[in-house]
Design a protein around this nucleic acid. Structure first.
Lengths: 106, 106
DNA sequence: TGGTTATATTTCCGATAGGATATATATCTC
DNA sequence: GAGATATATATCCTATCGGAAATATAACCA
């Protein structure tokens, strides 16, 4: 839920890779275990961390429990970055104007 | 330098607060120590982590060593988020069009 | 019901993190 | 050169992390 918790969840190479993979669609534990060459308990533990951080959700499909990505907390990171984005994006002002114009802009 | 290292550096409440403060301009160790109610060695250790992660730089001004924010690795996070931004930003397509038009767009 | 597959939980381990205190180093001032 | 101030480094402590292996639970299938 907190930014710190989100960053902590992403601060591990395995979990970062899991998130990237899940961006391509849901996957279950055995698939993830194979893809990342880690034991099933290790993957389950990582998934628990990601879920507690609100980055993924568990769905139930019979015997399997596919995990899927949840956008919200990544978006929170994006919003947090707003405070710094002017440091590198010189076009920010005009970008702001653009977004302010909203859906009406053609 | 790596994304994981960046996230790890941000995955601590004190360091996250340090980064936020430094977004408002450089500050030296004693100022940061006071502002965050931590011992000077603790702050120095945090600053070392942030510097190794490339998030801050040390400048030398006589006796003091003010730290200042470095944008690049935060921008890398921003770029990494691009892979996920479509999950929450419905206006992404039109935003892409806008950016493609570049500096010529009024 | 019994076996098989998918996943969770428990236990144990070595490594690392974050803090405080104590001490070293460097720079300024007199 | 002798304080005094700013910061770095070393040491120690406790807590947590990431992994493997063993075991438990749950769902499917015959």
């Amino acid at each position: 839920m907190s930014l710190v918790q989100t960053f902590a969840a992403l601060a591990d190479p395995t979990r970062l890779a899991l998130v990237s993979q899940l961006a391509g669609g849901p996957a279950n534990v055995s698939e993830l275990s194979e893809a990342h060459s880690l034991s099933q308990p290790a993957i389950s533990k990582h998934l628990k961390v990601l879920e507690k951080a609100g980055l993924i959700e568990t769905t139930v499909q019979g015997q399997t429990r596919p995990r899927k990505l949840v956008a919200n907390n990544l978006q929170q990171v994006d919003l947090w970055l707003n405070a710094f984005r002017s440091l590198w994006d010189a076009r920010l002002d005009r970008l702001g104007d653009f977004l302010d114009d909203g859906e009406d802009l053609q």
